[in-house]
Amino acid sequence: MNLTVVTVVSGRHEHLREQIRGLARSTRPPDHHVVIAMGDHRIVDVVADADTDTGTATVRYIDTVDGRLPLAHARNLGAQVAVTQGADILLFLDVDCIPGPEMAATYERACSDSANARSLLCGPVTYLPPHRGRWSEEELIAHTNPHGARPNPAVGAVDSGSNYDLFWSLSFAVTAPTWGQLGGFFEGYTGYGGEDTDLAATARASGIGLRWVGGAHAYHQHHAVSSPPVEHVDDIVRNARLFHDRWNRWPMEGWLAEFERRGLVARTASGRIQRLGEPL
């Protein structure tokens, strides 16, 4: 099967280099790697500098939207390019993630099983500590410690899931026909938050399954974060409202509750989320 990795990126140049190196040393390197650069013209040079024996990735450039990253549109464009290049399996991998050596092969086996073909397939994600220099394969394996909020089946096992809110777009695979049935990410979302939860809600509403794939390890490289992500409060409020309009429930409840506790947002009498100082 033709397996294509789709990565969207703005900045994070060294993280992208590490991902490309990881793909090159995979037991099953991808047939293609599609990289969508959002408002970052340097990505072409970064990819060329990180070129390996697997060949240079296909890079497409798109502009930001009023300074916000169009993540949903970028991922959809990446999938479109991949399908045009003949992809049977789309493997979406966040730019911060280094693939484990068996990740692509494990996803491919899961997608090849007819019981999983019409599903979102999700592997475990380990959050790495700060690190100087390149990560070796041995170091990654030694640091394997998947995030405890999501299932982590035994290697070789594929478990069915029912809590679609646990879906993350950091690392997942889907067959091209199932992607076509999904219709991709809803492009009304821009900036931070919401689009991956929306995709999972679309999958559930469409009868598309959720599968947890044991052994399809991805390793998330360290970068500074805030909790809650107050620098993205405007994006999160806007995208949460859009999600509520589409699905009649609120996503990102933990973040919204903490923003409310800090006086950054409030709930109106009608139950809407109101940004502090925003006109009614």
Results as ranks from 00 to 15, higher is better:
Leu3Ile: 14
Val5Glu: 03
Val5Leu: 03
Val5Tyr: 06
Glu14Gln: 12
Glu18Val: 01
Arg21Trp: 14
His32Val: 03
Met38Phe: 02
Gly39Tyr: 01
Asp40Met: 06
Arg42Thr: 12
Asp51Pro: 02
Asp51His: 14
Thr52Lys: 07
Thr52Tyr: 00
Thr54Arg: 15
Thr58Trp: 10
Thr58Tyr: 11
Arg60His: 14
Ile62Phe: 02
Ile62Val: 13
Pro70Arg: 03
Ala72Phe: 02
Ala79Asn: 14
Ala79Asp: 12
Ala79Gly: 15
Ala79Val: 13
Val81Tyr: 12
Gly86Tyr: 06
Gly86Leu: 06
Ala87Asn: 00
Leu90Pro: 00
Leu91Val: 15
Leu93Pro: 07
Leu93Trp: 05
Val95Asn: 00
Val95Asp: 06
Asp96Asn: 09
Ile98Asp: 00
Ser112Arg: 15
Asp113Tyr: 12
Asp113Glu: 08
Ala117Cys: 10
Ala117Thr: 13
Val125Asp: 05
Pro129Trp: 08
Pro130Met: 05
Pro130Lys: 10
Pro130Asp: 00
Arg134Ser: 12
Ser136Pro: 08
Ser136Trp: 12
Ala142Pro: 03
His147Lys: 07
Gly148Thr: 07
Ala149Met: 11
Pro151Val: 02
Gly156Ile: 07
Asp159Thr: 14
Asp159Ile: 13
Leu166Arg: 08
Leu166Gln: 13
Leu170Ile: 10
Leu170Gln: 11
Ala176Gln: 14
Trp179Thr: 02
Tyr189Ile: 01
Glu195Pro: 06
Asp196Glu: 15
Asp198Arg: 02
Asp198Ile: 00
Leu199Pro: 06
Ala200Arg: 02
Ile208Asn: 05
Val213Asn: 04
Gly214Cys: 09
His217Arg: 09
His217Lys: 09
His223Met: 10
His232Asn: 09
Val237Gln: 03
Phe243His: 05
His244Met: 07
Trp247Lys: 08
Arg249Thr: 11
Gly254Leu: 06
Trp255Arg: 02
Trp255Phe: 10
Phe259Cys: 02
Leu264Gly: 03
Thr268Gln: 01
Ala269Met: 11
Ser270Lys: 15
Arg272Tyr: 12
Gln274Arg: 15
Arg275Trp: 08
Gly277His: 15
Gly277Pro: 13
Gly277Ile: 13
